[in-house]
Nucleic acid binder design. Sequence first.
DNA 1: CGGGATCCAAAACGATACTG
DNA 2: CAGTATCGTTTTGGATCCCG
Lengths: 110, 110
Amino acid sequence: MSEKKSKFHCPVEATLSQIGGKYKMIILCHLIHDGTLRYNEIQKHIPQATAKMLVQQLKELESDGLINRKVYPVVPPKTEYSITERGKSLTEVIDSIRDWGRNYMSGTFE
Amino acid sequence: MSEKKSKFHCPVEATLSQIGGKYKMIILCHLIHDGTLRYNEIQKHIPQATAKMLVQQLKELESDGLINRKVYPVVPPKTEYSITERGKSLTEVIDSIRDWGRNYMSGTFE
DNA sequence: CGGGATCCAAAACGATACTG
DNA sequence: CAGTATCGTTTTGGATCCCG
C-alpha cells in the first residue's frame, strides 16, 4: 500500500493539525510547566474558554496522545490532566511561542 | 492612559494573535527560508489556499509588520513579498514548528 | 498577473440550560 | 465537579466573476 501521498504540503501544517486548535497550545503550555492539573484549574487558567470548548480541545489532545486524562471515581468528580511523553516533545515549540509572546507583550517589537 | 489591561491572559495567545491564521505560519516559513517571493510563487507553495485567503493572510501579516509587500508598476503586474526584521524574529518559532512537523510526518511519534 | 467584490457553505465558537 | 446537549452566532473558507 503506502499510497498515502501525505496529507500535508508542508511540515508546518502537520504540527498545526495537532496543536492548531484555539486553546490547544495554551493548554499544553500550562500542563507542561505546571504539571498535572484538574479540570477546573485549567479553566481558571483559560477563563475566556467556555466549558464546551475546553472539553473539546482536551478530548482532541487526548485522542492525539498529547495529554492524559485520569478520572477518579469519587463524588464530587475529580479529573486530572497531564502531559504525555509525546506531548513533552512539543516543549520547544510551545516555549518558543511563549517566549516570543512575552517579548511582544513587553513591547520589544512595538 | 495605559489603561490597556493587556488583551492576553497568556503569552502564547499574544503570539497566536499575530501568526495564528490558517496559512500565516506557512507563508512565514517560506518567506524566511526561500527569501523574496512573488505572489504566484507563494500560491504554488500553498496550493490548497484560495487567492482570497492568501491575499487576506498576506495583508494581515503586512499590517502587523511581519512581511513587506512591494508592487512593481509594470504590466503585467508584479508583486513581491519578503520577510521583515520583525518577521525574522519568528524564525525560532517557525523552525521549531517545522521541525516537529517533520518528525511527525516521518513517523517518529507514531 | 495580482488581486477585489460578492455570495454562500461549513466549521468554529459561544451562551445557556441541564446532568450524574 | 466535570462535564453534555442544544441552539444561535461568528468566523473561516471557497466559488465565481470582475478589474487595472
